[in-house]
């Protein structure tokens, strides 16, 4: 049985069916991501004044790596350009050019995911430490020259370490509210290129130890949920584009117009995924 309207537009919609289908799907995706963006805004506006970790549920600032986030944004914008060029190459009947652009698109997607993985790993080895005097500090641990991931107070006790070496973060300027002067010692440390202070803390002084994971703070909960969900979309899109570009290419010989429409639908999904990141990046990394 032949599937209708895969090439010719359906008279009532004026579009081929797959295009109507992908836009309906993208509408549902807007609702999904919209719910998460709304959640982010509500969590943020309801956070108490002050900044985490100094204030327990204050909103943290300056914890994400902005240069890496910027680079990843550029990678995704590039991939959007290449996926459109791949589609146009098919319209111009140039299959070799199409495959070259698809290869770059998939490479960009994998590059994005690889960078995101490193970013996640850095967070899993970054800790907030509650001390017996009630203060909280953040930093990386140094346990026998290694930076352990996902450690808790229990791991500390089991390791029988008496003194914990910590590379304590020097707060960056984004930790301070707009209009408030940055303390002179912090300003000086950053001017000298120092971003942490080496410190040794007796384990008996440590009340709790938690990595930057979703359960540590609502910011991490929403950050990991949104970026992981987005990452899954990138992975899914990359797999589909790889299939269209290099495995399922037989249709190009039997029905080139339908194949071109498939690439257009894949490209529409890819643009949506990139557009989500364009909103995610400033909201989570910058503001």
């Amino acid at each position: 049985m032949e599937i209708p309207y895969t090439v010719k537009p359906r008279p009532d919609t004026g579009l081929y069916n797959a295009k109507v289908g992908i836009w309906l799907f993208l509408a549902s995706e807007v609702m999904l991501f919209g719910a998460f963006f709304s959640t982010y805004i509500l969590l943020r506006v309801q956070a108490p004044h002050g900044f985490w970790p100094e204030v327990a549920l204050g909103w943290p600032h300056g914890l994400l790596n902005i240069p890496i986030g910027t680079f990843n944004t550029a990678v995704l914008i590039t991939s959007s350009v290449t996926v459109v060029m791949a589609w146009i190459a098919l319209k111009q009947n140039n299959f070799a050019r199409f495959q070259k652009f698809m290869a770059v698109t998939v490479a960009c997607a994998l590059g994005f995911l690889l960078i995101k993985t490193f970013e996640y790993k850095e967070k899993f080895g970054h800790y907030v430490i509650q001390l017996a005097d009630g203060s909280r500090i953040t930093g990386h641990l140094d346990v026998n020259g290694k930076s352990p991931l996902f450690w808790t107070k229990k791991n500390l006790e089991e390791s029988k370490i008496e003194t914990l070496k910590v590379q304590q973060d020097i707060p960056n300027k984004f930790r301070f509210p707009v209009g408030h002067a940055i303390p002179e010692d912090i300003h000086k440390a950053h001017a000298e290129g120092r971003h942490h202070n080496d410190r040794e803390i007796p384990v008996s002084d440590i009340v709790s130890l938690k990595a930057f994971i979703p359960s540590t703070h609502p910011f991490f909960a929403i950050y990991f949920t949104m970026t992981f969900l987005h990452g899954l979309h990138v992975l899914g899109g990359a797999l589909v584009l790889f299939y269209f570009g290099f495995i399922g290419t037989r249709m190009w010989k039997t029905s080139p117009e339908q194949f071109t429409n498939r690439i257009e639908v894949g490209g529409l999904f890819w643009h949506f995924v990139d557009l989500v990141w364009i909103f995610l990046f400033p909201v989570v990394y910058l503001l």
Partner: peptide, 23 residues
Amino acid sequence: SLKAFHVVFVAVSILLTLVVSSW
């Protein structure tokens, strides 16, 4: 079409660069 969505995407990307630069 993908062409129209691409134009929207580029326009939003330009807005992003303006937001980032003003920040």
